[in-house]
Design a protein around this nucleic acid. Structure first.
Lengths: 332, 332
DNA sequence: TGATATAATGGAAGCGCTTCCATTTGGAAC
DNA sequence: GTTCCAAATGGAAGCGCTTCCATTATATCA
């Protein structure tokens, strides 16, 4: 059926060991022999079986990415970075999309144990100590992107600084009544970014002697629709905010939608700033905090490959900078 | 090191054949024996090696998806459908992102030949006859989503009908000067959707006795920025269009941007309709043509699995319906 | 020219499974 | 207690590689 190394060996009149050596670029093959083998490979259109190689090498040569694709719009950009880096390596990329906590738990349990992959990259999902302990035992390296655990290599952005930046930006524009709309700070997926940005928000307020008003922090399920409702809550207050910081651009869209429904405009009536700098933010002239998605993906893979090469490698924590992008919805 | 089937066999006091039978749910194992084996598996926390299974079974149990992730925003939704369906099967999903023609050619050449996958799903990329012929020889089934080839199973939407629908919608609103902005009809990736929608556009015009004006068809590289420039071209005409049909929502954003720059509004000054119904279209109240992305992904995988199960399966061509979504930018 | 070191080569063993075939076991029927 | 058949089981072979070790060819030196 398929051409094997034996066929090539026979055709070239050599042993299979020699063919293997040629395949793997071993220097100890006479040049003339190498040519003969190469010719046989060519003539038979031979391709070594990756499965057999992997069994023999005791490596899977594949890396898994576990991510909540779709609950986070910016995910694609990160995945793109991941794919680009893996494509340059000898590894294959296999992906698991997590949209429910059940699937997450299943992935956390099975993926690193299944002898299926040499390493795991987890995006935006925070494992528990028990998960991490279990993974350590298997010896399969795990790297986190946009999530944190002290025992694992992580690539994060400084969301506290980002939250601070966005809030300070609004303060510097003269706002004092500043609201924050976010995902639930405590949520089943344990997404931490909303929480960190909240911390930055609170710090900025404190540093500028603006008292925090609990009613100005509205949390609800991620998404535009929910953010719209939360915004209406805010605008119904006796003392509505003059500026709203949304924990993501998607949510900022919901804010804008609510404003539109009330005939209000940004920034004149209410200033709005989002987070992520997703594709449409520029078109909408939405102020935001940009984070380096692509870069975080490439960096995550690079760290993971390092851990695969050298399992002794101590965990490394990389923090990527965020950048304030001031556009019309805050500065007019 | 790792626990193997031999360890389990020894522990359970049975032969490896029996362990394998238990693993694969063979009925011919005495119940008491099965319990003993199961217990041993549990105690040793054994997981069979997928690699060894695959080598033995002569199957890779993996499926490749080749797609231009990022040049097409709606891709994520399709990938989501693909992942969801594969996750229910015993297969793994490995992804290749194609952003250049070189990478595409490399993928087209190597992926189906490499003994790496049992099947290939290609999204939005049209292979040539030579590619297809080569694939047929290898016996690895290939299914196309959002692309077409007579010899392959395909899942497509009726883009001609979609283009027709959008154009007729504008005509019914009283427009006669209707422009079309699209990707280059002839392009290195051989994307066909712009071309098909163009065909629909031309047909609708013809059916309603509206002469086609070449200047009303503007083509340029995909993307918002380019569409914006093309729109300015249109608006600079002596006789500018009163309605613009953009081949994608992304491009429609560029159209809207250009209108905004000129102080024009949709639909009063110029009506605008896009294509795809991407996430933000609703927020922007953009009229558009919706296509079932998720469904196309699931269907593509289902077809592929069928071909893997039965290689004799003749190619099947599925056409999914599109739907006109009329919103503010056309109907006010 | 022969002895010896070195480079090149062949191929068995082993990676961890599945499966087939031979063998054993357990009962049913007498 | 036998006989016989079906069910249950053990384990060798084989999947297609890599690698190690033994062997052979080639080169070097005296």
């Amino acid at each position: 059926m398929a051409v094997t190394i034996y066929d090539v060996a026979k055709r070239a009149g050599v042993g299979i060991g020699t063919v293997s050596r040629v395949l793997n670029g071993s220097p100890q093959v006479r040049d003339e022999t190498r040519q003969r083998v190469l010719a046989a490979i060519e003539e038979l259109n031979y391709r070594p079986s990756p499965i057999a190689q992997r069994l023999s090498l005791r490596k899977t040569l594949t890396i898994a990415v576990i991510a909540p694709f779709f609950t986070r719009p910016a995910f694609v950009e990160r995945l793109r970075g991941v794919e680009a880096t893996i494509a340059e390596s000898e590894y294959d990329l296999i992906v698991y999309n997590v949209e429910t906590t059940d699937k997450r738990d299943a992935c956390f349990h099975e993926v690193p144990l299944g002898h299926k992959v040499d390493g795991v990259l987890i995006i935006s999902l925070s494992p528990g100590d028990d998960d991490v302990a279990r993974w350590q035992e298997t010896g399969v390296p795990v790297v986190l992107v946009d999530a944190y655990h002290p025992a694992l290599s992580c690539v994060v952005v400084d969301d506290v600084a980002g939250g601070y930046m966005a809030t300070r930006h609004l303060i510097e524009l003269g706002h004092r009544r500043i609201a924050y709309i976010s995902d639930p700070l405590v949520n089943p997926f344990n997404f931490t970014s909303s929480r960190d940005r909240y911390t930055g928000y609170r710090q900025a307020l404190a540093d500028h002697d603006i008292p925090f008003r609990p009613a100005y922090h509205q949390q609800g399920e991620h998404g535009r629709a929910q953010a719209r409702l939360l915004t209406h809550n805010l605008l119904n207050l006796d003392d509505p905010p003059t500026a709203i910081f949304a924990a993501s651009d998607t949510q900022a869209l919901g804010v804008m939608e609510a404003l539109r429904e009330r005939g209000l405009r940004a920034p004149d009536d209410v200033a709005v700033i989002g987070y992520d700098d997703i594709e449409v933010a520029e078109y909408l002239e939405l102020s935001t905090v940009r984070q380096p998605f692509f870069k975080s993906g490439t960096l995550g893979v690079e760290l993971l490959l390092k851990h695969i090469d050298d399992p002794q490698q101590p965990p490394q924590h990389v923090e990527l900078p965020v950048e304030l992008i001031a556009r019309r919805t805050t500065v007019g």
